[in-house]
Amino acid sequence: MTTSSQMRHRRGTRDRQAHRLKAFIGFVVCFAAIIGIWQLVTTGYDDGGLAPTPAASWQRLIEVLSTALVYNPPNDFGIVFHLLASLQRLAVGFVLAAVAAIPLGLVLGTNRVLHDALDPIIQVLRPVSPLAWLPVGLALLRDSEATAIFVIFMASLWIILINTIDGVYRVNPLYLDLAKTLEATWANRTFKVILPATLPGIVTGLRTALSTAWLVIVAAEMIVGNRGMGTFVWNEWNAMNINSIIVAIVIIGVVGLVLDRSIALLHRLIPTT
Protein backbone atom coordinates (compact mmCIF):
# COMPACT_ATOMS: atom_id res chain seq x y z
CA MET A 1 0.00 0.00 0.00
CA THR A 2 2.54 2.55 1.13
CA THR A 3 5.05 1.60 -1.55
CA SER A 4 2.54 1.89 -4.35
CA SER A 5 1.37 5.28 -3.12
CA GLN A 6 5.00 6.40 -2.83
CA MET A 7 5.60 5.20 -6.37
CA ARG A 8 2.56 7.02 -7.62
CA HIS A 9 3.80 10.10 -5.80
CA ARG A 10 7.25 9.79 -7.34
CA ARG A 11 5.80 9.30 -10.82
CA GLY A 12 3.69 12.43 -10.28
CA THR A 13 6.77 14.45 -9.30
CA ARG A 14 8.63 13.17 -12.34
CA ASP A 15 5.73 14.10 -14.61
CA ARG A 16 5.57 17.53 -13.08
CA GLN A 17 9.32 18.03 -13.54
CA ALA A 18 9.10 16.96 -17.18
CA HIS A 19 6.21 19.32 -17.68
CA ARG A 20 8.12 22.20 -16.13
CA LEU A 21 11.16 21.51 -18.26
CA LYS A 22 9.06 21.45 -21.44
CA ALA A 23 7.32 24.67 -20.47
CA PHE A 24 10.68 26.32 -19.73
CA ILE A 25 12.12 25.28 -23.10
CA GLY A 26 8.95 26.59 -24.75
CA PHE A 27 9.36 29.87 -22.92
CA VAL A 28 12.99 30.26 -24.02
CA VAL A 29 12.08 29.51 -27.65
CA CYS A 30 9.16 31.99 -27.66
CA PHE A 31 11.24 34.66 -25.94
CA ALA A 32 14.06 34.25 -28.46
CA ALA A 33 11.54 34.41 -31.30
CA ILE A 34 10.06 37.66 -29.99
CA ILE A 35 13.53 39.23 -29.66
CA GLY A 36 14.37 37.99 -33.18
CA ILE A 37 11.23 39.49 -34.72
CA TRP A 38 11.82 42.72 -32.80
CA GLN A 39 15.39 42.87 -34.12
CA LEU A 40 14.24 42.17 -37.69
CA VAL A 41 11.55 44.85 -37.58
CA THR A 42 13.79 47.55 -36.12
CA THR A 43 16.88 46.96 -38.25
CA GLY A 44 14.74 47.85 -41.28
CA TYR A 45 14.60 51.47 -40.11
CA ASP A 46 17.32 54.03 -40.62
CA ASP A 47 15.89 56.57 -38.22
CA GLY A 48 18.58 57.20 -35.61
CA GLY A 49 16.99 55.00 -32.95
CA LEU A 50 13.38 56.20 -33.12
CA ALA A 51 12.36 52.55 -33.22
CA PRO A 52 14.29 51.02 -30.29
CA THR A 53 16.41 47.93 -30.98
CA PRO A 54 16.76 45.08 -28.46
CA ALA A 55 20.43 45.94 -27.89
CA ALA A 56 19.78 49.65 -27.28
CA SER A 57 16.89 48.83 -24.95
CA TRP A 58 19.06 46.36 -23.01
CA GLN A 59 21.75 49.00 -22.64
CA ARG A 60 19.19 51.51 -21.43
CA LEU A 61 17.81 48.94 -18.97
CA ILE A 62 21.29 48.58 -17.47
CA GLU A 63 21.59 52.38 -17.25
CA VAL A 64 18.20 52.76 -15.61
CA LEU A 65 18.91 49.97 -13.11
CA SER A 66 22.37 51.32 -12.27
CA THR A 67 20.85 54.70 -11.37
CA ALA A 68 17.81 53.10 -9.74
CA LEU A 69 18.51 54.52 -6.29
CA VAL A 70 19.30 58.11 -7.26
CA TYR A 71 17.32 60.46 -5.02
CA ASN A 72 17.89 64.03 -6.02
CA PRO A 73 14.67 66.04 -5.67
CA PRO A 74 12.84 67.74 -7.22
CA ASN A 75 13.83 66.69 -10.74
CA ASP A 76 15.99 63.60 -10.57
CA PHE A 77 14.68 60.30 -9.23
CA GLY A 78 15.86 56.74 -9.83
CA ILE A 79 13.40 54.17 -11.13
CA VAL A 80 12.92 52.65 -7.66
CA PHE A 81 11.44 55.90 -6.35
CA HIS A 82 9.15 56.21 -9.38
CA LEU A 83 8.01 52.67 -8.75
CA LEU A 84 7.47 53.27 -5.03
CA ALA A 85 5.42 56.39 -5.75
CA SER A 86 3.18 54.46 -8.13
CA LEU A 87 2.79 51.54 -5.72
CA GLN A 88 1.95 53.86 -2.87
CA ARG A 89 -0.81 55.57 -4.87
CA LEU A 90 -2.05 52.18 -5.96
CA ALA A 91 -2.15 50.90 -2.39
CA VAL A 92 -4.04 53.88 -0.98
CA GLY A 93 -6.62 54.05 -3.77
CA PHE A 94 -7.07 50.29 -3.80
CA VAL A 95 -7.50 49.91 -0.05
CA LEU A 96 -9.99 52.80 0.05
CA ALA A 97 -11.97 51.18 -2.76
CA ALA A 98 -11.95 47.80 -1.00
CA VAL A 99 -13.05 49.36 2.30
CA ALA A 100 -15.95 51.06 0.54
CA ALA A 101 -16.94 48.34 -1.92
CA ILE A 102 -16.87 45.17 0.21
CA PRO A 103 -19.34 46.28 2.93
CA LEU A 104 -21.54 47.93 0.31
CA GLY A 105 -21.43 44.77 -1.76
CA LEU A 106 -22.48 42.66 1.26
CA VAL A 107 -25.38 44.99 1.96
CA LEU A 108 -26.54 45.11 -1.65
CA GLY A 109 -26.12 41.37 -2.00
CA THR A 110 -28.42 40.68 0.94
CA ASN A 111 -30.95 43.42 0.31
CA ARG A 112 -32.79 42.99 -3.00
CA VAL A 113 -34.68 46.29 -2.86
CA LEU A 114 -31.58 48.35 -2.22
CA HIS A 115 -29.73 46.42 -4.90
CA ASP A 116 -32.39 47.04 -7.54
CA ALA A 117 -32.57 50.70 -6.56
CA LEU A 118 -28.83 51.28 -6.96
CA ASP A 119 -28.20 48.90 -9.85
CA PRO A 120 -29.00 51.38 -12.67
CA ILE A 121 -26.51 53.88 -11.21
CA ILE A 122 -23.81 51.24 -10.82
CA GLN A 123 -24.36 49.92 -14.34
CA VAL A 124 -24.08 53.42 -15.84
CA LEU A 125 -20.93 54.37 -13.93
CA ARG A 126 -19.19 51.00 -14.19
CA PRO A 127 -18.18 51.04 -17.91
CA VAL A 128 -16.78 54.59 -17.77
CA SER A 129 -13.01 54.68 -18.28
CA PRO A 130 -11.44 55.67 -14.96
CA LEU A 131 -9.32 58.23 -16.82
CA ALA A 132 -12.48 60.14 -17.73
CA TRP A 133 -12.73 60.94 -14.01
CA LEU A 134 -9.35 62.63 -14.04
CA PRO A 135 -10.39 66.17 -15.09
CA VAL A 136 -13.38 65.95 -12.75
CA GLY A 137 -11.16 64.78 -9.91
CA LEU A 138 -8.66 67.56 -10.53
CA ALA A 139 -11.40 70.18 -10.63
CA LEU A 140 -13.04 68.93 -7.42
CA LEU A 141 -10.05 67.89 -5.33
CA ARG A 142 -7.59 70.52 -6.59
CA ASP A 143 -4.67 68.27 -5.84
CA SER A 144 -2.84 65.95 -8.20
CA GLU A 145 -1.96 63.36 -5.57
CA ALA A 146 -5.55 63.08 -4.42
CA THR A 147 -6.75 63.01 -8.02
CA ALA A 148 -4.47 60.11 -8.94
CA ILE A 149 -5.73 58.19 -5.89
CA PHE A 150 -9.31 59.08 -6.80
CA VAL A 151 -8.80 57.64 -10.30
CA ILE A 152 -7.46 54.40 -8.79
CA PHE A 153 -10.40 54.37 -6.42
CA MET A 154 -12.86 54.68 -9.31
CA ALA A 155 -11.02 52.04 -11.30
CA SER A 156 -11.22 49.48 -8.47
CA LEU A 157 -14.53 50.32 -6.84
CA TRP A 158 -16.99 48.86 -9.35
CA ILE A 159 -15.09 45.66 -9.96
CA ILE A 160 -14.82 44.83 -6.26
CA LEU A 161 -18.45 45.85 -5.67
CA ILE A 162 -19.91 43.75 -8.46
CA ASN A 163 -17.82 40.69 -7.60
CA THR A 164 -18.83 40.98 -3.94
CA ILE A 165 -22.54 41.17 -4.82
CA ASP A 166 -22.09 38.24 -7.14
CA GLY A 167 -20.28 36.35 -4.37
CA VAL A 168 -23.22 36.85 -2.01
CA TYR A 169 -25.62 35.52 -4.63
CA ARG A 170 -23.51 32.39 -4.94
CA VAL A 171 -23.70 31.58 -1.25
CA ASN A 172 -25.28 28.17 -0.88
CA PRO A 173 -28.93 28.80 0.20
CA LEU A 174 -28.59 25.82 2.52
CA TYR A 175 -26.26 27.84 4.78
CA LEU A 176 -28.74 30.69 4.96
CA ASP A 177 -31.63 28.37 5.71
CA LEU A 178 -29.56 26.70 8.39
CA ALA A 179 -28.66 30.05 9.91
CA LYS A 180 -32.34 30.97 9.93
CA THR A 181 -33.32 27.66 11.54
CA LEU A 182 -30.71 28.18 14.24
CA GLU A 183 -32.06 31.71 14.77
CA ALA A 184 -28.65 33.28 14.20
CA THR A 185 -28.40 36.99 14.90
CA TRP A 186 -27.84 39.44 12.07
CA ALA A 187 -24.22 39.86 13.05
CA ASN A 188 -23.62 36.15 13.23
CA ARG A 189 -25.37 35.58 9.92
CA THR A 190 -23.29 38.29 8.19
CA PHE A 191 -19.86 37.66 9.69
CA LYS A 192 -19.96 33.92 10.33
CA VAL A 193 -21.98 32.75 7.32
CA ILE A 194 -22.22 35.22 4.45
CA LEU A 195 -18.78 36.87 4.65
CA PRO A 196 -16.74 33.62 4.72
CA ALA A 197 -18.86 32.12 1.96
CA THR A 198 -18.46 35.26 -0.15
CA LEU A 199 -14.66 35.42 0.21
CA PRO A 200 -13.87 33.68 -3.10
CA GLY A 201 -15.95 36.27 -4.96
CA ILE A 202 -14.32 39.12 -3.05
CA VAL A 203 -10.80 37.84 -3.76
CA THR A 204 -11.60 37.46 -7.46
CA GLY A 205 -12.86 41.06 -7.41
CA LEU A 206 -9.73 42.30 -5.62
CA ARG A 207 -7.48 40.48 -8.06
CA THR A 208 -9.18 41.86 -11.19
CA ALA A 209 -9.42 45.32 -9.66
CA LEU A 210 -5.72 45.40 -8.77
CA SER A 211 -4.57 44.66 -12.31
CA THR A 212 -7.00 47.21 -13.73
CA ALA A 213 -5.82 49.80 -11.21
CA TRP A 214 -2.17 49.16 -12.11
CA LEU A 215 -3.11 49.63 -15.77
CA VAL A 216 -4.75 52.94 -14.95
CA ILE A 217 -2.22 54.47 -12.56
CA VAL A 218 0.48 54.59 -15.23
CA ALA A 219 -1.85 56.44 -17.61
CA ALA A 220 -3.05 58.80 -14.88
CA GLU A 221 0.49 59.69 -13.82
CA MET A 222 1.31 60.76 -17.36
CA ILE A 223 -1.06 63.65 -16.81
CA VAL A 224 -0.64 64.45 -13.10
CA GLY A 225 2.17 64.04 -10.61
CA ASN A 226 5.91 64.53 -10.58
CA ARG A 227 6.95 61.02 -9.60
CA GLY A 228 5.73 57.62 -10.68
CA MET A 229 6.09 55.18 -13.55
CA GLY A 230 3.66 57.20 -15.70
CA THR A 231 5.63 60.38 -15.13
CA PHE A 232 8.80 58.51 -16.03
CA VAL A 233 7.29 57.35 -19.34
CA TRP A 234 5.95 60.83 -20.11
CA ASN A 235 9.25 62.59 -19.33
CA GLU A 236 11.33 60.10 -21.26
CA TRP A 237 9.05 60.47 -24.25
CA ASN A 238 9.34 64.25 -24.10
CA ALA A 239 13.12 63.90 -23.95
CA MET A 240 12.76 61.56 -26.96
CA ASN A 241 14.41 58.63 -25.14
CA ILE A 242 12.32 55.91 -26.77
CA ASN A 243 14.58 53.15 -25.38
CA SER A 244 13.45 54.14 -21.90
CA ILE A 245 9.85 53.45 -22.85
CA ILE A 246 10.72 49.80 -23.51
CA VAL A 247 12.47 49.64 -20.14
CA ALA A 248 9.38 51.11 -18.50
CA ILE A 249 7.11 48.61 -20.27
CA VAL A 250 9.20 45.70 -18.96
CA ILE A 251 9.26 47.03 -15.40
CA ILE A 252 5.53 47.85 -15.37
CA GLY A 253 4.76 44.38 -16.72
CA VAL A 254 6.93 42.54 -14.22
CA VAL A 255 5.54 44.51 -11.28
CA GLY A 256 2.01 43.86 -12.54
CA LEU A 257 2.76 40.15 -12.62
CA VAL A 258 4.16 40.19 -9.08
CA LEU A 259 1.10 42.09 -7.82
CA ASP A 260 -1.26 39.64 -9.46
CA ARG A 261 0.59 36.61 -8.10
CA SER A 262 0.75 37.99 -4.58
CA ILE A 263 -2.97 38.63 -4.42
CA ALA A 264 -3.58 35.21 -5.97
CA LEU A 265 -1.93 33.79 -2.83
CA LEU A 266 -4.98 35.04 -0.94
CA HIS A 267 -6.98 32.38 -2.78
CA ARG A 268 -4.94 29.69 -1.03
CA LEU A 269 -5.69 31.18 2.38
CA ILE A 270 -9.41 30.78 1.82
CA PRO A 271 -10.78 27.60 3.38
CA THR A 272 -12.45 25.53 0.69
CA THR A 273 -16.06 24.65 1.37
Partner: peptide, 23 residues
Protein backbone atom coordinates in the same frame (compact mmCIF):
# COMPACT_ATOMS: atom_id res chain seq x y z
CA UNK B 1 17.21 75.00 -11.94
CA UNK B 2 17.78 71.26 -11.46
CA UNK B 3 17.93 71.37 -7.66
CA UNK B 4 15.93 74.38 -6.52
CA UNK B 5 12.94 74.38 -8.87
CA UNK B 6 10.47 71.61 -9.67
CA UNK B 7 10.50 71.64 -13.49
CA UNK B 8 7.55 69.81 -15.03
CA UNK B 9 7.09 68.95 -18.67
CA UNK B 10 3.38 69.11 -19.48
CA UNK B 11 1.09 69.58 -22.47
CA UNK B 12 0.70 73.34 -22.97
CA UNK B 13 -3.08 72.92 -23.25
CA UNK B 14 -3.21 71.41 -19.73
CA UNK B 15 -1.15 74.06 -18.03
CA UNK B 16 -3.71 76.88 -17.63
CA UNK B 17 -5.99 74.45 -15.79
CA UNK B 18 -3.04 73.15 -13.78
CA UNK B 19 -2.23 76.71 -12.74
CA UNK B 20 -5.88 77.32 -11.83
CA UNK B 21 -6.17 74.31 -9.54
CA UNK B 22 -2.80 74.90 -7.89
CA UNK B 23 -1.12 72.01 -9.62
Amino acid sequence: PQQDVDLRIMRPADMVTALAVGE
